[in-house]
Measured scan of single mutants.
Amino acid sequence: HTVDVQGVTYHFDNPEEARKFAEEMAKRLGLQVHVKDGRYKVE
């Protein structure tokens, strides 16, 4: 499970961890979480 944050890619084994990380980063950076091709993108 992959999370892209402003061009940096993070990998997680656990989909729940990936989702939480994406939401946390989006909140911290004031950005949105998009799901695209099964990847989380924070932009």
Score class of each variant (00 low, 15 high):
9 T>M: 14
26 A>S: 05
38 G>S: 04
6 Q>N: 10
29 L>K: 04
41 K>G: 06
13 D>Y: 08
40 Y>M: 13
6 Q>C: 15
11 H>E: 12
8 V>G: 05
19 R>N: 05
31 L>S: 04
11 H>M: 13
36 K>Y: 05
32 Q>W: 05
27 K>N: 09
6 Q>K: 10
17 E>K: 10
23 E>P: 00
32 Q>K: 13
1 H>L: 10
15 P>M: 12
26 A>E: 02
2 T>Q: 13
35 V>T: 06
8 V>F: 11
25 M>E: 14
34 H>P: 01
14 N>Q: 10
21 F>Y: 07
40 Y>D: 04
14 N>T: 14
38 G>F: 03
26 A>M: 02
18 A>N: 00
41 K>C: 15
31 L>W: 08
7 G>V: 01
3 V>K: 00
9 T>I: 15
41 K>D: 09
6 Q>T: 10
29 L>S: 03
41 K>E: 14
13 D>G: 10
42 V>N: 02
7 G>A: 04
20 K>A: 13
20 K>P: 02
11 H>L: 12
28 R>Y: 08
4 D>P: 01
15 P>A: 13
12 F>D: 00
5 V>C: 14
30 G>E: 04
40 Y>S: 05
42 V>G: 03
43 E>P: 03
6 Q>P: 03
32 Q>E: 10
29 L>N: 03
16 E>K: 08
31 L>Q: 04
13 D>E: 13
42 V>I: 06
15 P>C: 13
9 T>W: 09
12 F>C: 07
12 F>L: 03
27 K>L: 11
10 Y>M: 04
10 Y>T: 06
16 E>C: 07
40 Y>K: 04
40 Y>T: 08
43 E>I: 08
30 G>I: 02
32 Q>A: 14
43 E>A: 09
26 A>R: 02
14 N>A: 11
31 L>M: 14
38 G>W: 02
5 V>D: 00
14 N>C: 15
28 R>G: 06
21 F>H: 03
37 D>W: 01
20 K>T: 12
38 G>H: 05
15 P>E: 14
34 H>G: 05
20 K>Y: 11
17 E>Y: 07
19 R>T: 05
5 V>S: 04
1 H>R: 10
9 T>V: 14
43 E>C: 15
23 E>F: 15
33 V>M: 06
10 Y>G: 01
34 H>L: 08
15 P>Q: 14
3 V>T: 03
30 G>D: 06
14 N>G: 12
5 V>Y: 04
25 M>P: 00
33 V>T: 03
41 K>R: 13
4 D>V: 07
15 P>H: 11
18 A>S: 05
30 G>N: 07
9 T>Y: 12
7 G>L: 04
42 V>E: 03
7 G>T: 04
35 V>I: 12
7 G>S: 05
30 G>T: 03
34 H>Q: 11
28 R>P: 02
30 G>H: 06
13 D>H: 09
32 Q>C: 14
23 E>H: 14
32 Q>M: 09
37 D>V: 02
18 A>H: 00
15 P>N: 15
1 H>M: 12
34 H>F: 08
10 Y>H: 08
3 V>G: 00
35 V>F: 15
24 E>A: 11
25 M>L: 07
25 M>N: 06
9 T>F: 13
38 G>C: 14
42 V>P: 04
23 E>A: 07
11 H>Y: 13
5 V>G: 03
2 T>E: 13
25 M>C: 15
21 F>E: 01
24 E>K: 09
6 Q>A: 08
43 E>G: 14
18 A>I: 01
37 D>H: 05
16 E>G: 09
31 L>C: 12
25 M>W: 12
30 G>F: 04
17 E>L: 09
26 A>C: 05
15 P>L: 08
39 R>G: 15
36 K>N: 07
36 K>V: 15
9 T>K: 08
31 L>A: 08
21 F>L: 03
19 R>H: 07
2 T>C: 07
38 G>Q: 04
42 V>Q: 02
41 K>Y: 15
3 V>S: 01
35 V>N: 05
10 Y>P: 01
11 H>S: 13
31 L>I: 04
1 H>T: 14
28 R>L: 13
17 E>T: 10
36 K>T: 11
39 R>P: 01
1 H>A: 12
21 F>D: 00
7 G>D: 07
12 F>M: 03
25 M>D: 01
30 G>W: 02
32 Q>I: 14
38 G>M: 03
10 Y>R: 05
12 F>Y: 05
15 P>K: 14
1 H>K: 09
41 K>Q: 15
28 R>T: 08
30 G>K: 06
21 F>P: 00
29 L>E: 03
36 K>W: 03
